[in-house]
């Protein structure tokens, strides 16, 4: 579905992503993990069109999308959420999502955009009445709104950026379930960047680990969690490794 070959992105003298290649299969959930500054967000921003890659190719359904404008990438069927939700406070909840439904699908009929928005809101469990406001939504609801906005654009591939950060344990489980449901009910393929590893390891089919802009491991969660290089660069301590391996084994 998505294949990345030799992707590099530099900021001045700093190489944020160095010659990274990977592929995403239709219908899978791929986890993307790594310590701070490992290049996860840069890869996301390049995939979504917010950054232009310096080298390498990005093919989505056989078509080169590297360097396309963000709106064209959304229109091709790649939706994204943001780590820090940035809703439009002066717009109603429904308006927030409808906009994405309208422009994300390349300006279809009003009714279709509205239906897409209502479906997305219902799926994530947010109110669909027109008067509902964005103000007063908690961290968990704002994360749901992010997902609803991305889903309303009718994506085939969803780029989920830290859908768990800022949530408590119960909310994290719910958010993880939601990602599973999005894949199951809508058939959406998901690439999920996350800092919190335990829950991610239970949900994803495969996981890829980045460090200093390079891919250091890729495979099934249990394999990756046991990889000594991953334990060294990402987890640091043996104790954490044991915890993650246990979490992966449970899932």
């Amino acid at each position: 579905m998505l294949s990345i070959e030799g992707l590099s992105k530099r900021f001045g003298g700093f190489t944020a992503v160095n010659n990274v290649s990977f592929a995403v299969e239709p219908g899978e959930i791929l986890g993307l993990i790594g310590p701070n500054g490992s290049g996860k967000s840069t890869i996301f921003n390049v995939l979504a069109g917010a950054l232009v890659p310096d080298a390498g190719s990005i093919r989505f359904e056989g078509r080169e999308i590297g360097g396309l404008a963000p709106y064209r990438i959304v229109n091709l069927g790649i939706g994204r959420t943001f780590q820090i939700p940035r809703p439009f406070h002066r717009l109603s909840l429904v308006e927030n999502v409808v906009l994405s439904g309208f422009y994300g699908q390349g300006r279809p009929a009003r009714a279709r955009a509205f239906e897409a928005a209502e479906r997305a809101l219902a799926l994530v469990g947010l109110p669909t009445d027109r008067a509902a406001s964005v103000d007063g939504l908690g961290a968990a609801a704002l994360k749901k709104l992010e997902l609803a906005k991305a889903l309303a654009s009718g994506p085939k591939l969803l780029l989920a950026d830290e859908s768990l950060s800022g949530l408590d344990e119960h909310e994290m489980d719910q958010a993880a379930d939601l990602l599973r449901r999005i894949r199951k009910d809508l058939g959406v393929t998901i690439v999920w960047v996350e800092h919190i590893m335990g829950i991610l390891m239970r949900v994803v089919d495969r996981v890829m680990v980045l460090d200093h802009g390079e891919k250091i491991a890729e495979g099934l969660p249990a394999q990756v969690a046991a990889d000594p290089r991953v334990i060294e660069v990402y987890l640091g301590t043996q104790a954490a490794a044991v915890r993650v391996a246990a979490a992966a084994a449970r899932g």
């Binding site: 917010a50 709106y71 717009l91 906009l99 654009s153």
Partner: peptide, 24 residues
């Protein structure tokens, strides 16, 4: 109108809007 709603939205957050599929 959707165009009007997009104008209000872009007035509030230029960056996000373009990433939502709007040709700014």
């Amino acid at each position: 109108t959707y165009t009007g709603t997009a104008i209000r939205a872009i007035a509030q957050d230029r960056q996000i809007m373009t990433l939502m599929g709007v040709d700014s």
